[in-house]
């Protein structure tokens, strides 16, 4: 498929960039900044000297230590969210050169290989900005509550082992369970929109992340106990039927989670659920 090719091309381009990157060069980091909710946005550019292995995080750190813009203006350290810096916590997600991804794994060599190249940073657009590049993703955790993304165990007392499981089933669940709630899938989704009002969270499209998590727990022997309730939620407003099949989610997922398969699997479950519910009468 052409887009798969484009992706390869992109990766190849990045590999080339990395090979040809000029050591010790200076690059421009252009950042969309905002002082807080309701405040206007503005662009600021900073010149940063790169070193071997520089990434967006190391650049933002060096800006924080000396926040002077390219036109010589003294500014303030840029605010951004980050955690593990290994692409497993999901915190440092932002929009880089127009595309959502984690900033820790964004190597400057791949994106700005030549002297004076510019890298553009923006906060995610589907979540309310707290300040600068930091956004509030509480809605994602709220969605996990809506789909009851947990295994309803009896308690933490010693009650023996969990259910046995085939390696294939484990692999299926593990792939889904790698979701770090980063929000890339939602940022890239044309059906998922910014909702400042928390009231709207329960009826606006819930997005691939929570749908896939619902599937994860529906796949677990004990987790299945809540399957009906999860499906009921996902059959309601903002549920799985609101998916528009643009399939951007699966292409931007940093963990390669088969999100579109999850959406289809939950679609199948809801079909069966609706039919059985109709004939069972409850």
């Amino acid at each position: 498929m052409s887009d798969a090719y484009a992706h390869l091309h992109d990766a190849e381009q990045r590999r080339q960039n990395r090979k040809n990157a000029v050591p010790g060069r200076q690059v421009i980091i252009k950042i969309k900044r905002c002082d807080g909710p309701g405040k206007p946005s503005r662009w600021e550019s900073f010149k940063v000297k790169t070193e071997a292995g520089s990434n967006v995080i190391s650049c933002l750190k060096s800006i924080a230590a000396n926040p002077v813009t390219t036109d010589g203006k003294q500014s303030t350290p840029v605010v951004w969210d980050s955690g593990c810096l290994e692409e497993v916590c999901g915190a440092c997600t932002m929009v880089i050169n127009g595309r959502v991804r984690q900033s820790c794994s964004c190597l400057i060599d791949e994106y700005a290989p030549r002297e004076g190249d510019t890298l553009t940073l923006e906060p995610m657009s589907k979540f309310p900005v707290i300040r600068d590049l930091w956004v509030d993703r509480e809605r994602m955790f709220h969605a996990l509550k809506r789909v009851q993304a947990w295994v309803p165990i009896d308690g933490t007392y010693n009650l023996g082992a969990g259910p046995k499981e085939s390696p294939e089933q484990q692999q299926t669940r593990y792939d889904l369970s790698e979701c770090m709630t980063c929000g890339c899938c939602l940022e890239a989704c044309p059906q998922f929109n910014l909702e400042e009002d928390e009231q709207a969270w329960d009826t606006a499209f819930i997005g691939a992340q929570a749908i896939s998590q619902a599937r994860l727990f529906n796949e677990h022997e004990t987790g299945k106990r809540l399957k009906g309730e999860r499906l009921d939620t996902l059959m309601g407003a903002g549920g799985v039927s609101d998916c528009g099949n643009a399939q951007n989610c699966v292409k931007v997922c940093p963990k390669g989670i088969p999100l579109t398969e999850s959406i289809a699997a939950v679609g199948r479950s809801t079909t069966i659920h609706a039919v059985t519910r109709f004939f069972r009468g409850k």
Binding site: G160, Q170, S177, T222
Partner: peptide, 22 residues
């Protein structure tokens, strides 16, 4: 061992052997 059992019950996808054990 009890903690592993509990985590197993919570749904942690521990790698499995061919027979389905951890």
């Amino acid at each position: 061992p009890r903690i592993i059992d509990l985590l197993d019950r919570m749904g942690v996808p521990f790698n499995r052997t061919a027979e389905g054990f951890r």
